[in-house]
Design a protein around this nucleic acid. Structure first.
Lengths: 198, 198
DNA sequence: AAGAATATATACCATGCAGTATATAGATTT
DNA sequence: AAATCTATATACTGCATGGTATATATTCTT
């Protein structure tokens, strides 16, 4: 069973995560967080050492949520191609999924923290590489099971694959136009069928 | 001839532009700027109404520099394909070019200002669409002159093209790994030759 | 070169910031 | 239910923030 204190900590993270993601590390003030949580500074500082620890926990929370959903897609039953298509389908509505998180955490934190907070920047980088690795694994299995035929190494293909997705996310975010997601995913699907077929 | 005052204004913008780009709108303090310029608040506020106006001028400065270099590439003598290849060649070293600007202004400002400053966010979006338009124009001319054969409209191709480039920029920035730029450009060049050939 | 106009420096607001010490309220254990 | 322990609220630092009023340099015009 979870104690009251644990639940409060969890509640703070959940509440605070989208705010940090939206406003950025420096752009978020402790009073933004007391206001959003309905708690006081005493409560926040009782649960977290400082603002940085809070921001890190917030990012980890968003990151885990994202990784979980990606895992879910890549765990889809069927061929490696089926798994990848489940993933692209997810990314087609990535903006909807990340809406309540306050946008793409990798993009937001990765860019925002780049020159402001080393730990956060490193965490974003780590999450990104994590996702690349997951995609590469599916590709690798596809090759091993004689299903797929890659023009490059699995990791290299995964990196190019993810670069395109992240490009769509970035441009869709900047222009506030989700068509970039839809079009990029459509393009990726054509590309996959053309390049990965044995 | 330029008056002293005009030169001071220009000097402030030049000096301040990379700082805003690196640290973000909120992350940049007026004292960061007085320190960097060697001027006092009186001088800064004498030349610009407020922090926002200064940040906007700074972004416009970076934006114009970027658009100018892109124009230079797309003005390369030769076929439309030559022009596009000049552009991709430029983007291969985009990180070097944007180093002294403090990173990609479109990505940094577009993401940073997204939830913090409407004017800056709108300016970043505008610059992005501007670049897409420039690329589309070259493609359009290539089609008109019977050189290229597009699978989609010029603007649509340009959007997909730029999305990939911006993806490489984003991921290279987040991971601090320029290989994404190199690889994406290499991939784009193969793609162009395959998809655009008449 | 003198005078007018303009640009920059100085000194100062009020406000918001992250963080803390301590008091109070609440939960957990016996 | 009482006692202990823990978590939250309150009130308060010291400092940095954006911005301004005014005095002092400096530039431009004649």
């Amino acid at each position: 069973m979870t104690t009251k204190a644990e639940r409060t900590t969890a509640y703070i993270i959940e509440t605070v995560a989208p705010i940090f993601n939206k406003l950025g590390y420096i752009g978020t003030s402790m009073s933004d967080l007391t206001e959003a949580t309905g708690l006081t500074k005493g409560a926040l500082y009782g649960n977290f050492e400082n603002k940085e620890a809070l921001a890190l926990s917030a990012f980890e929370y968003n990151s885990k949520r994202l990784l979980k959903v990606i895992d879910d897609q890549l765990d889809t039953a069927g061929t490696s191609m089926d798994k990848l298509l489940a993933l692209t389908k997810f990314y087609r509505n990535y903006d909807v999924f990340t809406l309540e998180m306050g946008g793409c955490p990798i993009l937001n934190v990765g860019v925002d923290a780049q020159n402001n907070n080393r730990l956060l920047a490193a965490a974003a980088k780590e999450t990104l590489k994590n996702i690349e690795g997951k995609i590469a694994l599916v590709l690798e299995n596809g090759v091993k099971s004689n299903e797929l035929n890659l023009p490059v190494t699995p990791l290299q293909f995964a990196k190019q694959f993810y670069t395109m997705l992240q490009g769509a996310i970035a441009v869709a975010t900047i222009t506030k136009d989700r068509k970039y997601l839809v079009n990029t995913v459509a393009y990726l699907e054509v590309l996959m069928k053309r390049e990965l077929k044995k």
